[in-house]
Simulated assay, not measured.
Amino acid sequence: MRFTLVTIAALASSAAAVGHAVVKNNCQDTVYLWSVGGAVGPKVTLGQGGQYSEQLHRDPASGGIAIKMTKVNDGLYTGAPEQIFAYSLDNDKTWYDMSTVFGEPFKGQHLKVICGGGGTIDWPNGVHPGGSQVKVCSSKNDVIFTACA
């Protein structure tokens, strides 16, 4: 019984050791973001120097999470250009990428996604540079998107 409790406690603590998805806004423009999985989360407003963070998690309906950003208030609902920072938690790994829809809201601005021990996604001019953008790292690490890096 003692071994079982120790084992369960160790497994629970290792499962809780999950990183965060972080968005940093170093741009002068205000950025509006929504965390979207099977449902749309509340709008978050980030001014210059603002930061948003959520614990990495798996959405039971969609599997992954898309953090959708616009430079237009309520842009998610008006067809404004969207920057998408997406991730999918897969046991001990986090898969992440970056894309856009309806245009390129950060065109001309440096975008970067980093994760310790994983690959870097770097868009020096705020536009997709071509090729695969999907990267992977340990789920224990934070995955950090920086606008105006």
Score class of each variant (00 low, 15 high):
Thr4Tyr: 15
Val6Arg: 11
Val6Phe: 14
Thr7Pro: 02
Thr7Ala: 15
Ala12Ser: 07
Ala17Lys: 08
Ala17Tyr: 08
Ala17Ser: 09
Gly19Asp: 04
His20Asp: 13
Lys24Phe: 12
Gln28Glu: 11
Asp29Leu: 09
Tyr32Phe: 15
Leu33Asp: 06
Trp34Glu: 08
Trp34Phe: 13
Ser35Cys: 06
Thr45Cys: 12
Gln51Phe: 05
Glu54Pro: 03
Gln55Arg: 07
Asp59Trp: 00
Pro60Val: 09
Ser62His: 05
Gly64Thr: 00
Gly64Glu: 01
Ala66Asn: 06
Lys68Arg: 14
Lys68Gly: 02
Val72Ile: 07
Gly75Lys: 00
Leu76Asp: 03
Thr78Lys: 15
Glu82Pro: 01
Gln83Gly: 12
Phe85Asn: 01
Phe85Glu: 00
Leu89Cys: 03
Asp92Ser: 15
Thr94Arg: 00
Thr94Met: 02
Trp95Thr: 00
Trp95Ile: 00
Tyr96Leu: 00
Asp97His: 07
Met98Gln: 07
Thr100Cys: 09
Pro105His: 03
His110Asp: 14
His110Ala: 14
His110Asn: 13
Cys115Asn: 06
Thr120Gln: 15
Pro124Ser: 08
Pro129Asn: 11
Gly130Val: 14
Gln133Gly: 07
Val134Tyr: 02
Lys135Glu: 14
Lys135Cys: 05
Val136Lys: 00
Ser139His: 03
Ser139Phe: 01
Lys140Gln: 15
Val143Gly: 02
Phe145Trp: 10
